[in-house]
Simulated scan of single mutants.
Amino acid sequence: RRAGFLRPEASIAAHLRRAAELGAELRFEEPADAWEADERGVRVRTARGSYEAERLVIAPGAWAPQLLDLELPLQVLRQVLVWFDPEGGTEPFLPDRFPIYIWETPRATFYGFPHQEGPPGGVKVALHGGGEPCTPETIDRNVRPDDIEELRAVIGERIPALRGPVLHAQTCMYTMTPDEHFVLGMHPHRPNVVVASPCSGHGFKFASVVGEILADLAETGATRHPIGLFDPTRFA
């Protein structure tokens, strides 16, 4: 009764809308190429120009290995998400009957959600962990037959009705740390830079509190939240 899920697109839109209301200037389709920092401030270079400020919060997602400027053992992995049309129909998978879950089995770990989007939407499932190493530039965005069969074989052992036809499939990326915890904190060599990789496949649900932590660090260099577990220097 206490479980739930977030709709990522709606959540991101809400965060962006609120940020704009509070005075943030939003920029899109503008890749960041590099940044530098010294005692005078920070400078970020993008495809459209450069920007200067007193402090920088850098949260580059799957681009973290290139842009964080730290010797972190990060690995980016290709992941596949699939929406199946359940055998026997979607009624048993409606939210009032079917839970959000993550299932660890000897073969693999997979997770999924109830049916949400009406008959065309299907039931979303995916493997958690594993996947091919990649970068944002090299990831294979095509979903291959072997991707589907691997997931269908794993989930079919536990939820046979989800071996039905595929309605939709797509890829995403996990940015993994060896201990599968986040990276959050001040840059160890740049006191005016905050680094963030709230990652390893379970970061989005913590977006609000991570944002609060990053704002604290950018403003004061400290936060009331216990973030020692996520120290960027822990792998040194």
Rank of each mutant, 00 (worst) to 15 (best):
A218G: 11
A218N: 10
R97L: 13
P198F: 00
G131E: 09
R163M: 02
E150H: 14
K124G: 01
P191C: 13
T135Q: 12
E117Q: 14
E117G: 15
P114V: 08
G203V: 00
P145V: 08
V183N: 05
R190Y: 14
H225Y: 15
H202A: 04
P133Q: 15
N142V: 05
T105P: 10
G130W: 01
G203H: 03
Y101C: 10
D96I: 07
P106W: 11
L184V: 03
F204R: 11
S208N: 11
F230G: 04
F182M: 01
M186R: 10
P165I: 09
P232Q: 11
G164H: 11
H202M: 02
G122K: 06
L94M: 15
L214G: 11
L162Y: 00
S208H: 12
E132A: 15
P160W: 01
K124Q: 02
K124N: 05
F206V: 04
G130K: 04
E117R: 15
E149W: 02
T233P: 06
P106C: 14
R224G: 15
A108Q: 13
S200R: 00
D96K: 12
M176Q: 08
E180V: 00
I213C: 12
H225G: 00
S197I: 00
D96E: 14
P226T: 05
G131W: 04
C172R: 11
P99G: 15
F206P: 10
P188E: 07
P136Q: 12
T105Y: 09
T223H: 10
H168D: 09
P145E: 14
F182N: 01
S208T: 12
M186D: 06
G228P: 02
G203E: 03
G185W: 02
F98K: 05
P99C: 15
L127C: 03
A215I: 05
L184P: 10
V195M: 03
A153Y: 04
E219Y: 07
